[in-house]
Design a binder for these strands. Sequence first.
DNA 1: CAGACGCATCAACATTTCTTGATGCAAAAT
DNA 2: ATTTTGCATCAAGAAATGTTGATGCGTCTG
Lengths: 109, 109
Amino acid sequence: MSTTTSADLARTARLFHALSDETRLRIVQMLQRGECCVCDLTGALGAAQSRLSFHLKTLREAGLVSDRRCGRWVYYSLVPGALDELSELALGLRPTEETWTSQGEGCCR
Amino acid sequence: MSTTTSADLARTARLFHALSDETRLRIVQMLQRGECCVCDLTGALGAAQSRLSFHLKTLREAGLVSDRRCGRWVYYSLVPGALDELSELALGLRPTEETWTSQGEGCCR
DNA sequence: CAGACGCATCAACATTTCTTGATGCAAAAT
DNA sequence: ATTTTGCATCAAGAAATGTTGATGCGTCTG
């Protein structure tokens, strides 16, 4: 029995929101292959630097991405397990067992 | 090798967007237990009818929910498998194997 | 030290998304 | 036949989100 608090919902919404943008999905795809600094991303995605910083911030605040400073570069990478958690959240929203056994009763329930 | 077209990205973003809102998450939670008509939802969620219709439309257009008219009621329900697809999409964004074996090289790669 | 570089952040604006109340329609109910 | 009910849809406004160019800060390079 999972009592879902409003805070849980907010976090879940936040997580899904982080992946609800094409630019951010592209960023994640880049990061799949390994760490990237912002300039790697501007090159590959052809997007302005400030734009990417903005989206990286969104991803970081959602907990999907982490950053590591190194000299004048900042390397971003995917947080291990974060996407597994997201996957679990999605599965947790699926219809319950009894839903599919107790349905189909003609019209109007 | 999965070539990800721009259309794919758009659909993925759309799917995640559908679950990026607390009201819609609540709706999905309600629907987990089985079909609901809009008036069930207004009652349970304490939200205006037009507001719920708006969010239900978003969920429907994302393919997460389907509707069935019956007399003057419209019953909404979760589309079987849709959340599994979403879960798979999340897993597909995880870091690749080699990412974790080829990393950790001190500073600046 | 003086520049160049990588990045975050900000302000201004554009765009999208959400909310609310009104209107309309089709299907009961009377 | 008229009214009521359940819902979609619309227009208008409010709020959130994304974009762009400018600015500033720390760090490397010469």
